[in-house]
Simulated scan of single mutants.
Amino acid sequence: MNLTSERAPLTRVPLSDATRPPLDTTQLPWPGEHVEAGGVRLHVRRTPGPADETAVYVHGLGGSSMNWTDLAGQLSLHAQGIAVDMPGAGRSEPPPGHTFDLADQAGTLAAFLRGLGHGPVHLFGNSMGGASAMILAARHPDLVKTLTLISPAVPDLRPLPNRMSDPRIPFAMMPLIGERFRRQLAALTPMQRAQQLVNLCFADPSMVPQHRMHETANEFVERAKIAWAGQSLMSLTLGLFRAWLVPPSQSLWRIMPNISAPTLVIWGAKDKLVTVRKAPRTARLLPRGRLLVLPRTGHVAQMERPETVARAALGLWEAEQDGSW
C-alpha cells in the first residue's frame, strides 16, 4: 500500500481488524426504502449500527446505493450507514426542475441530511459523488464531520471514449447519428453491460464475485423499466461535463480550499476513469487533506478493497476525535 501526502504523512496505525466484522462478500444489498426529509425524497439503503455516529455514502455516475454494500458492512460496528440513490439514479426519481448539475446535487443532498437531523456525518463520495460531496462540505460545513473521497471526479479532460464502459456512449448522446448508437447499446444483454462496467471500473475484473455480477445485471434490468432513468443518466453525465468546463474561478479546484473537514483522499493507482495523476493536487488543495494511493486498484476502491478503505476511514475518524488530523 503506497501512502503519500503533500502535507504530513498519515502515520496513525489503523484500528485493529477486531473492530470490524469479517468481510462477507455474500452480503446482500442492505434493505432499501424511500425516505422524505428536508423536502427531498430519496431512496436509501440503511446499515444498522451505533446511532451516535452516521456514515453517509454517495455513489458515482451510473452507480447507486448498492455500490457501498461491503464497505458499509465493514464500518457497521462504528456507525449506522445511509447509502443514498442520488436524484435520477438508482430508485430516486428526480424532482421537477432538477438541473442535474453538481451544485444542484450537492444542495439536494444537504437539504436531505439537514432534514434527517443526524448532526454532522462521516461523508463518503465516489467519483461524481465525491465531487458533489466536496461542494456540500465546502458550502455546508456544519453537516460534515469527516470527508472521505474515493477517486473524486475532479476535472479530467482526457479523451472520453476510452473512459466509458462502451466507446459508443458519447456518440449515442449526439443528435441525428445518436439514434443508431442508442439502438446498438440497447441490444446488449444486461450481463454484457455489467461486464463492460466492471472491466472499466475494476483493476482486476476477475475478482468480482459472480453474484455481484448478477446484482449489477439485475440493476440494469430494473433501470430499463424506469421511464426517467435513461434521460437522467444522460443529464447527469452532461452535468458533470459542465462542471469540468466552467471558468477557472468556478472550478472544483477553487472549491477545495474552502473545505474545513478532515479529509482522506483515496485513489486507485489503476483508475481508468479519473487519472491518479490528479490525486496529489487534490490532497494538496484540501486544507486538512491527506492522500492514500492503493496499488492494483481501479476507480471503485470501496468495492475492490473494502477492508483497506474501512481501516483508513476508521483511522480518520479516530484522528478527528482526538484532534490529531
Rank of each mutant, 00 (worst) to 15 (best):
G130K: 03
Y57T: 01
T69D: 03
G62C: 10
Q210Y: 00
W317H: 10
R284I: 00
V13H: 09
A279H: 06
A153W: 06
P161F: 11
A110T: 08
E36S: 15
R45L: 12
P95M: 15
W253K: 11
L314Q: 04
V13S: 11
S16N: 12
L316G: 05
L149S: 04
A301Q: 05
A8E: 13
G32I: 03
L285H: 08
V13C: 03
H118G: 06
L3I: 13
V154I: 14
L200V: 00
S132T: 14
S206H: 11
M213G: 02
N199S: 15
D24G: 02
I169D: 02
R182T: 11
H122V: 10
P120H: 05
R20Y: 04
P9S: 12
L109Q: 08
A111W: 01
A243H: 07
M191Q: 10
L28E: 15
V44S: 01
R91K: 11
V44Y: 00
L240I: 13
H98E: 10
P257E: 08
A243D: 12
R91D: 14
A279Q: 10
A269M: 14
E93Y: 03
A224C: 01
A37L: 13
M1E: 12
I226Q: 15
P257H: 06
P14E: 14
M303I: 05
L28T: 12
F100E: 01
L197C: 03
A310D: 11
D166W: 08
T297K: 03
E304A: 09
S64L: 01
L200Q: 03
A283T: 09
L10P: 02
A51K: 03
I177C: 04
A18Y: 01
R45N: 10
V300N: 06
E6N: 05
T148F: 03
A194I: 09
D70A: 11
M303T: 09
D322E: 15
L245K: 13
L160Q: 07
M1S: 14
I266H: 05
R180W: 13
A153K: 05
S151P: 04
